[in-house]
Design a protein around this nucleic acid. Structure first.
Lengths: 192, 192
DNA sequence: AAGTATTGGGAATGATCGTTCTAGAATGTT
DNA sequence: AACATTCTAGAACGATCATTCCCAATACTT
């Protein structure tokens, strides 16, 4: 045993995640990463193997992050309708100090066709978000807030698809009010 | 005056478009382009200025292409409902010899944040697709096929957002049946 | 205090990036 | 026939790419 690591793996991975999130995989160079992560190239390779592995770990971190945030929306809500509105609001407005859009959607668009690992991770994360949406829908259907005309799993697919569209739109300079109108209308289908 | 050009500008641009569409901007190198377009580097630079300008022209070509295809869906249809089903079907299943997904959505995700020209082109093209959807909605509302509860322009935003989501999903290996279910449910809101 | 793993700065690797250039051959116009 | 333009082939440009390596300083363990 000897000298212990001087950086928090989680903290530097967070910085790598934000860079990839903002710029994409190909555009983000190792110089970018070294500069923004604040660690030495050597440490980066020792800890994260190579650029591709680092990207996958950053993507996992993003998945976890999104999962946490969406779960928080559900926990904070007093009704299924409020949960859904919080989720859509979160997707549209994001967080401070976070790049616009969604790293998973970006990664799927950029890499899923040629990178099987990214493809698998993206579908996995999408499925996870869909499950969370399905839980909200079931809750709303049981409480009578939402219609029972449609299957909860199908509605979750539908809602997730709309969220994915919004995640693309937040990368462009589209006005937020427009996205909010779209989210509103998307949720109308749930009315009993 | 002297020797005339030996290649069709449109034909080689088509090949560049497909490369950018499949691989994205950063991943596509000039060697890739020269190799697949079948013309000399020199001719490429003489005709298209540089990589970025070539990309913008390829993006314009994609816009036109999408516009043509969607207009064809509308022309081929006997009802607003059929027009919409054709549009969704086209987005989900694409064409032969065409990469999966949508070059505009990919470009927005990859570049809109840092490239103002791509951002502008993407929003412009999205607006154009929305206008086409609005026309279909108006047609359906006038014929009594669609509900008049909601504003046509708002419904067009809503439909376009769902289409955008589908365009992302077609980049992953998600099953087509699932996307068709989602499209179905998305169109249900139009029922009177 | 001795030994060891990790740190920093930075140089080197060979490959590839976008772009430009020098040629000469080919094909049009006058 | 003479000329102008575009073609093909490929070398060369400097910059940057991901990755590896060297070296000396640092900080932990025993």
């Amino acid at each position: 045993m000897a000298r212990s690591k001087e950086f928090e793996e989680a903290a530097v991975l967070e910085k790598a995640m934000k860079l990839f999130w903002e710029q994409g995989y190909e555009k983000t160079s190792l110089n970018d990463l070294v500069e923004h992560m604040g660690i030495h190239r050597r440490s980066l390779y020792d800890t994260f193997t190579d650029k591709h592995t680092l990207f996958l770990k950053a993507l996992e971190r993003f998945e976890d992050r999104i999962g946490d945030r969406l779960t928080a929306c559900v926990k904070r809500s007093r009704s299924a309708g409020e949960a859904l509105r919080l989720v859509f609001g979160f997707i549209i407005h994001g967080e401070e100090d976070a790049p616009a859009g969604c790293m998973l959607v970006n990664s799927a668009a950029e890499l899923a066709l040629r990178d099987a690992e990214v493809d698998a991770k993206a579908r996995e994360a999408f499925a996870s978000t869909e499950r969370l949406l399905a839980e909200i829908v079931v809750r709303g259907q049981e409480s009578g807030e939402f219609t029972k005309r449609y299957d909860a799993a199908e509605l979750a697919e539908y809602l997730h698809n709309a969220l994915t569209g919004l995640r693309v739109m937040t990368r462009t300079t589209t006005a937020k009010e427009k996205l909010e109108r779209t989210a509103e209308l998307t949720m109308r289908i749930l009315e009993p």
